[in-house]
């Protein structure tokens, strides 16, 4: 067998395996496309923007990697009778003697028993085709009924952002003491609700301002002013509006009939005991 024939065989091996890899990687790329499409659709992201580049990159990278790895040892592993012989033939293309000729003849004879189908994993391919069909069905189904986890990712991000900004603003206001309810109207998270309002108290003859420090638990107080002397009646009785009153239900005089009723009532209670 001539050197040209061996070169032809080696080229044919490369060509055949390139075809097999192309089919396999196309199937994988379709699967990747559909999977990414479905995931993006469920999360409300325009699916074509991500699915096409993802599938294309996947296909290109894997295809080139697998094609570069095509070598005769793929066949040697599958067909042990060709072990070491095929690669020896590959590496001795420039030699031409009777031993090499015999080796080439032997390899040619054994190569006739090699079939392309033995390198094609039917089970795996069918599983992938099944997965493609399932994904197509899921995409169509969710599209018809508009079933999504998130309707619009853009809107979701915007809303989430606004909420995050609001929370952040409240936290800032809280620590800067500008929140609502801090000595004023209530509502919202503010220092007054936690630390209490600023208050004025009278200690002896001094009016004192007392305020809890936000950064620590110290109480800040300072003298406001000296209070004016006031009489008890002036300060408390008049200012509070105290006055005596008789309970309208209290009576000193009862009628005979009332007295009888009351008496019999208490007799009843005493007899029942």
């Amino acid at each position: 067998m001539s050197k040209e024939m061996i070169e032809k065989i080696l080229k044919e091996i490369r060509h055949t395996f390139t075809g097999l890899i192309l089919f396999e990687q196309l199937l994988n790329a379709i699967l990747a496309f559909l999977l990414v499409y479905f995931v993006l659709f469920m999360f409300g992201i325009p699916p074509l923007y991500g699915a096409i580049p993802a599938a294309a990159i996947y296909f290109i990278l894997n295809f080139t990697r697998r094609v570069r790895g095509i070598d005769v040892d793929i066949i040697e592993k599958k067909y042990p009778q060709l072990n070491e012989r095929l690669r020896t033939v590959r590496d001795s293309l420039d030699q031409n003697n009777f031993i090499v000729e015999k080796l080439r003849d032997e390899v040619d004879l054994k190569m006739s028993k090699v079939t392309v189908g033995s390198f094609f994993d039917m089970k795996q391919s069918f599983l992938k085709i099944g997965a493609v069909c399932l994904l197509c069905f899921m995409i169509i189904f969710t599209s018809i009924f508009n079933l999504r986890l998130i309707n619009d990712m853009g809107e979701f991000i915007t809303t989430a952002g606004e909420k995050a900004v609001a929370i952040s603003s409240n936290i800032n206001d809280f620590f800067e003491g500008n929140a609502e309810g801090n000595g004023g109207d209530g509502g919202g998270l503010n220092g007054a609700a936690i630390f209490g309002s600023k208050s004025k108290a009278e200690l002896g003859k001094d009016e004192v301002l007392m305020q809890m420090q936000y950064a620590n638990d110290e109480i800040d107080y300072s003298r406001e002013k000296q209070i004016e002397d006031q009489q008890f009646e002036e300060r408390f009785l008049n200012s509070r509006g105290f006055e005596g009153a008789v309970d309208a239900t209290y009576k000193e005089e009862y009628s005979k009939t009332d007295r009888k009723v009351i008496k019999s009532y208490f007799m009843e209670i005493a007899n029942n005991k």
Binding site: E84, D91, I99
Partner: peptide
């Protein structure tokens, strides 16, 4: 001479 002509792969 024959012995030296026995082919050997580059892996070997």
């Amino acid at each position: 001479q024959f012995t030296r002509q026995v082919p050997i792969s580059s892996d070997m």
